[in-house]
Each structure stands twice: as C-alpha cells, then as structure tokens.
Design a protein around this nucleic acid. Sequence first.
RNA 1: GCCGAAGUGGUGGAACUGGUAUACACGACGGAUUCAAAAUCCGUUGCUCUCACGGGCAUGUGGGUUCGACUCCCACCUUCGGCACCA
Length: 874
Amino acid sequence: MHQGTGNGQIPFAVRTPMTEKYTPRTIEAKWQTEWENNSVFKVEETPDKETFYLLVMFPYPSGRIHMGHVRNYAIGDLIARYQRMQGKNVLHPMGWDAFGMPAENAAIKQNTHPGDWTYSNIDTMREELKSMGLSYDWSREFATCDPDYAHWEQVLFLKLHEKGLIYREMSHVNWDPVDQTVLANEQVIDGKGWRSGAPVERKALSQWFFRITDYAEELLTDIEKLDGWPETVRTMQTNWIGKSHGVEFSFTIKGREERLPVYTTRADTIMGVTFCSIASEHPLAVEIAETNPEAAAFVRECQATGTSEEAVEKLEKKGFDTGLRAIHPFTGEEVPIFIANFVLMGYGTGAVMAVPAHDQRDFEFAKAYEIPIKVVIQPEGETLSGETLEAAYTGPGTLTNSRQFDGIDNEAAKRTVAEAFEAEGIGKATVNFRLRDWGVSRQRYWGNPIPVVHCPSCGVVPVPESDLPVSLPKEVELTGSGNPLDRHPTWKQTTCPSCGADAVRETDTMDTFMESSWYFLRYCCADLNSAPLDRARVDHWMPVNQYVGGIEHAVLHLLYARFFHKALRDVGLVSCDEPFTKLLTQGMVRKDTHTCPEHGWRYPSEVKEERGRLFCIECGAEISVGRNEKMSKSKHNVVDPNDLIKGYGADTARLFMLFAAPPERDLEWNDSGVDGAWRFLNRLWRLVVDVASRTEEIAPATEMPKDPALKKLRSKLHATIAKVTEDIERQSFNTGIAAVMELVNEASPFLQNKKADTITLSILREIAEVAILLLHPYSPHITEELSRTLGHTGYVSQKAWPRADAKALVKEEMTIVVQVNGKLRGRLTVAADTDQKTLETLAQEDAKVVPHLEGKSVRKVIVVPGRLINIVAG
RNA sequence: GCCGAAGUGGUGGAACUGGUAUACACGACGGAUUCAAAAUCCGUUGCUCUCACGGGCAUGUGGGUUCGACUCCCACCUUCGGCACCA
C-alpha cells in the first residue's frame, strides 16, 4: 500500500464489496453514525455503578486539529473504552478552551470578529474529532466563550472575591510604547514588540491577583498525595512553589531613617557579606533615580527588558553603586548598596545580602565591580582565600572569620545565626515561597470580563449577581493597538450598582487559565442553568480518575487548576481536595523540517523524493533536511490528520499513534510506520473474515487441547490477554499492540492449513474473538465491524474485557540460561518443577558450558529461579 | 541562567523488580505468486573475525558498585520541554 499521506491521494475510490476488503471509509462512517444515533457513549449519574472520569485536556480552537490532538485523544479514548469494557460508568467529555489571543490576532489580520472566527473553528474541529471515532458524551460539550460558561465563571470570580481571595495591586507588564499595548511574552521577540518592532519596556499597571500563595503550603504538602502523577511533574511543581527556610532581617542604612529588609537562605554566611543588591523596581532604587540621573539611566536600562524570568536571568550581570552604605548588623562594617539587574522584585523583599565567596552570582558581580571577597566557610582539609578563589564555594564546611560563630558547622550555623538575629531583635527565621500570586488581568478583548465597576465615590464595586453576566460588546475595533475594551466608545460607561452615580466598568478580562481551572467541574453538570455547579453531581464524578494531556502544562495549568479547586472547596462548591487523581503527560509529535534554498520551509507535500534525495517540487532545488522538531505550522513540518484519516482511516491513524512510541515520550512522525499499522489491520481483517467463513458451525475453544503445538498456541492466546491487560493498566500501550501482533503472527501458519481440524479451528475462532476485544480500545471501528462478521450483535464498545484462563497460563517447561562469569554460554530446557541442585548439576555438565570451565575451579553458583544460573569460576 | 526530562541496530522502539540486550514494527536484501505491476506470503538482517564450529565487541562519553548493569552511583556531552500575558 503506497498512499502518501501528504500528497492528497484518496485511495479508496474503487473497491470491491465490504466483506472482501477492508474499507475504513465506509466502516468508520457507519459506526460513528450508529454510536451517535444510539447514544452509546452518553452517560448519566447512575448510583449503583462504579464511575470512571476520564478527562483529556480540551483544545484551543485554533482552526484544525493537529497530530498532538490526535495523540492526546487517541490515548484518552483508549483508556475510556478500556474502562468501559471493565464495567465502569465512564464520563468522557469534550469542550473548547475558546478565549484567547489567537482569535484576536486573526481578527486583526483577517478583519473578522473573534467570536465568529472561534465558533467557525469549533464547527470544523468538532467534525474532525468526530471523524476519529472518539467515545465522547457530546451532550456535555460547551465552549468557554459561551455566554453561559462566562456567566458562571463571573459568579465564581465574585464568590472568591467576597472570600478575600482576590485583590488588586500594581504589577509590571511588557509594554509596547508604539502600539500602546501590553505584550505577551511570546509577542516579545529579541526584546522588541512583534508588530511594531519597538524595544519593549516594563510598565507598572494596576492588576487583579488571586491569592494562590495563601494555598502554597497546602499545594505543596498535597503533592505527596498525588502518587498517580508522574514524579517529574511533582518535582516541577515542588520546585515551582519553591518553599525555602531562611531569615529575614534589616540592614540599617548609613545616614537614613529607613531600613533595608532582606531575605536570605544562607544566614550562615552573614559574616561574608561585602555588599547588598536591590531590584531596579525597589522603592529605594526608584527614590534614588528621582534625583540621580545616572541611577535613573541604569534603572531605565534594567526596565528595558521583558518581564520573563528567562530574559532577566540571561542578562549580563550589571549593577549601579547607589552610594548608600548598609551597616552590617553584627560587625558594624559599611558595605555598598548596588542596584542590580538580576535581582527580582517579586521574590522575597527585592533586596539581597551579597556574599561573593559563597554565591556564584555574587561572586561574578564582585569580580566585575572589584568588591572584596571574604571567605567565611572552610571545607574540611582545605583553606580557601578570597584572593585566590576562582568560583564561589557553595559546599559544606566550618565557619571562619565569623567572630562568635567561628567553628560551627555551616548547616547548624543557619539556626544559630537566626537565633542571634532574633535575640538582637533585628530579624527572624521565616519561610518563603518562590510562588507568586496569580495575576489574572489581561488587557485584551477576547476574554471573560472581570465583573466589577469602578465608582469615583464607592471605589471597586462588584456587579450584582442579578446583573451578570457582563458581556463583551459585539461591535469592536481590533487594531492591535491599545486595550480594545478601554478604547470602546460606550461599553465601559455605566452606573455604580451601589450609589447610582456615573461609573466605569473594569476593562481587564480574565486570564484564560481561569476557564481551564474549572471546566472539568462544569462537565459534570453542563446543562445546569441556575448555578455554576451542582455539588451532588460534581461529587458523583469527581475527582477525575485519569487526566491526559501535554507535558507543557506540567506547572501552570495544573497548579492553577489545583489551586482553584481548593478555593472552590473552601467556598463550599466541591468536596474533594485534589481534582486529578492520576495524570498522564504525553510527549510531543515531532517531524524533520525541510528547507529549500529558494522557498524556505517546505510542507511534506511540497517535496519529492528521487533516489533517496529530496527536491523542491517548485524549483527542483535540493532540500536540506533539518532537525526533528515539534510539529508546527511555522516550520511547515506538519502532517494534516485529515489527510491521514481520509487516506487510511481513523483506526490506522490511532493505532499508529499508540504503537509508535510510549505515550509519555516524544513521537517521531514516520509515514512508513503508518503503512505498517495499515497492513496490520488488513491482516487482522483477513484473519477474522477467513476464520468466520470456516467456523460457522464451530464454537470458540474453552479448554486446553492435547496437541503440543495447539497447546502452545492457546497458551499464547491467554498470555496475550494477560499481557495486554497489564500493559494497558501500566500505560504501556505500544507493547500491548506488539503482543497482539505476536499472537496474529503465531496464528498465521495454522490459518494457512486449509485442512485444519475442528479443534484447531475452535482455537482460531477463540483467537479471532479475543483479538477483536483486545484491539477495540485502539481501533474501535474495524473491531465493531469484525464482530458483526463473526455473527455477533450489539456493540463491542459495551462488551466485557476478556479474562485470561488461568489453566492456559501454567507453564510445564522453562528455559534456563547458563552463564559463566556473567557471559552467556548455554541454555537448558527443563521441567518447570526442577529443583535447584539438579539445575546446578545440569548446568555444569552442559556440553556448551564444560569448555569454559576447563582449568578453572567453580567458586560460586548463583541461581535465579526460572531465569538463569551464573557459574563464577577462576 | 534556573528547573525538569531523554539518549539502545540503518529507523521508531522492547527489556516491567539488577538476571537471555535488540520483542514488535519500519526500512533494506533475497525468494514465491503475477503477462506485468500493486497487494499478499516466506526467508535474511546489530557490528566484527571465521569456509565453518565458534569467538570478540556493542545500550551518548568516561569512571565506579556488583557474580551479573540499558537498569544503581559520580562526572561530562548532546537534544528536548517549562520559566508566571502562547495555550
């Protein structure tokens, strides 16, 4: 079968009748209609049935589905179908994460309305998803931009506001001075605005925040409960929350009233402080900049960088001496205070004590600005000196040059110094978190409006529930410049709900992470039209048993959703502490990139292959094959799932996706691998059709045959059931398919025997029946069809998962490997109940082993039961 | 820069708890079938020495632990993801 996926060929134009050949197009359309017409996947809250909530991350409706979606949803559907066959009541919903920037960008570019663009994309993508044959309960579908969802989200916002979990504060954003607009980090390219090309500035704006830091401790400790999550995601969240124990204390500043509070985790190095550094946004820095033009210039320079941590960290370390001197709390020494471009205002107090001898950043800074380096921790057996040090020493050791603290182990000293601070009344031991409060304000049009009004006399007034939702204006001018809601001629003009005076609406909209923080709760009661959530129905399904989505969401979405869920718990809307019991993070889909010297990035269909080399279809120039990268439109290294589904069918597409790599790993796209999946489904088709035609009068086998070859075959069948079940349970979907492939391979010689007897045929019949069940979660349509071929009624989707026959799994013989000094030298085939002594003797007498023992004496014999014998000789 | 992963034949991957390295699939080569092609079926296929029997070497690199290491420990290299306004 050589049907390229990218060249637009549709191979099923002419075909013989269905029972003869596998024709996915007709079969898949047929079963999708059947499932839909009979509401096979619609679920209700049934009290007596065990529930299983399978959630996949809902897509952003960008236009068309991509391979990443296909992979995510193939994995999700596999688990949903498997759990359904295990007898569970499975909730498997789908919806749309529909607010966001791309709709606004499209609106600017194509002069459409973001809403029209979004809903039209949803219609397209819904059809695409339906063509995959996914077992969703579509009756629960919604888009987060639906007036209904936005309405209930505003209600939730106000509930949390009332609870005191939301506040307003100044914060810095990326500002494009030409377009007069806030830029997302991804819109900042090399420090410049993506549209205007103007250098980006940091600008302070008043913004809304969620008090996620109030939950920092609980978010951290509950990570321990998440044992169904990948260890890597748990570690990433732990590091993100970043709990640290340290000391907060204040320096007095020479000749000034106010003090300089700093936070440090290295109180043990207190005597090594030779300077202090403060962030450019620090009040002290701002104050100095007002009167000192040089300082102002440096502060401006610092603020001419994006707000991302990455941008700040990658800067060359620079500082400006404020001329102020801090007084060391213990020695009374004076040390300079620098404004430094690498100190973050958002962490701790925005000021740090600097110890160049024991902190690498401080070390580099001190070298650049010729600041003394004072060693206060000596590692055992070495004597470091500030003059000769080549890098900061951050390891353990004993305190030195530290007066009253000399001789103390540095770990112990962290406490001793903290206690000294407390005794002097100038500082105290504190716990600090790296986690910052969640900024939810966005200065954009296509988002959910924050439902408050600003009144000149009453201040911030929430919109009363009866006046909700606050809707976006239909008429809007999107130019990419300014905040569209703020610039709108009338929208923000309103009256104060409290005093009735003229007032203005809040023009910020909510971060789209808001919508994805509770969509899984709304699925439980999507038809509810009187409140955001129905607690009884939510409790019926929650928590999510299995969540499946991309690893790129490991921190932000998954942390925000955990926080939001806990906040809703505390306002009495949900019961459980954690929303997602198990998490599967799938890897990305990647493909090589093709570039033409003339035309740049090329799509797979714009490239032709000749004698193993690739050429541009337009100009004939040789194509250079670039690195394997995440599929993305910008690099043109995409394969359209629609072409794949049209060409091979959804079953092949899904099977390939699940076979090509384990789910958590990146998947490398490979056209010929798809051919392999296609061929396998055809082999299965022929096997079942053949077996069906030969076993009309024969029932599937139910017990072990006498013939050794048949016995082996039936054992293989039941071992396959056990293996596939185990593999799906441990989420090793690729090896599950391999096991079924092995079974089909092993059955094929028996199938070719045209004179096979009744017993053989009954086993082949059993194999056909079981293979269909085992493969159903991978390739649902073909298995439904083949079940009919075998004469069954009903839906495989609603059948029970097969069980392995314990009698068929009993082994009578085993193969034991014999090693000499760890090297493989022979093999023994023995009865399964052979005892150790006999095995040792047999091993040492084995003809292939004896030569390797010659002239040596056996020192030790290691026997691993059922596996191997290692003879240690020398 | 910081945090988190991954590296196994020509290719995707398997080896689950430290115990037969390379299951399964792709590709390649040879054969059967065919007027021919497609499709299908059968066989070979880590590298290397050897007519053969058989041996040696191989899991990114370098060390270590162990009777035994893809698996555990240390260091390094390369690639990928996240870094708070992309979703």
